[in-house]
Design a protein around this nucleic acid. Sequence first.
DNA 1: ATTAAGGCATGAA
DNA 2: GTTCATGCCTTAA
Length: 104
Amino acid sequence: MEGNRNTVKKKILIEISLVPEGRVTTYGLIGQKVGCNPRLVGRILHGNPNPKLYPCHRVVYSTGKLSKAYAFGGIEEQRRNLLREGVEFKDEFRVDIKKCLYNP
DNA sequence: ATTAAGGCATGAA
DNA sequence: GTTCATGCCTTAA
């Protein structure tokens, strides 16, 4: 795509900040919106400059499964955060993606 | 129908 | 050339 690499990074962070409480989004969905592949989304999240501004715990796989490499307290902390917001879980580390997906 | 596991393609740093 | 916090496909149970 265009030579503006920094914009992609910024867009990803903005998209994540748009996800409301009690909802989740996926790496692929964000990738579509900002025009990059899902892996890049995960990469950017890993270097998340501010977890409070950008709720990366609301980003899961398209299958609803949580990433095992959540870097801000671990996958257990991510699950705890989602449960607190009212996200339903099917398994210990799998959210009910059909109900909680933020899909405007 | 649903789930889990393995393999491959993809794009930016 | 390598590294990824993925998605999709196929196979098996």
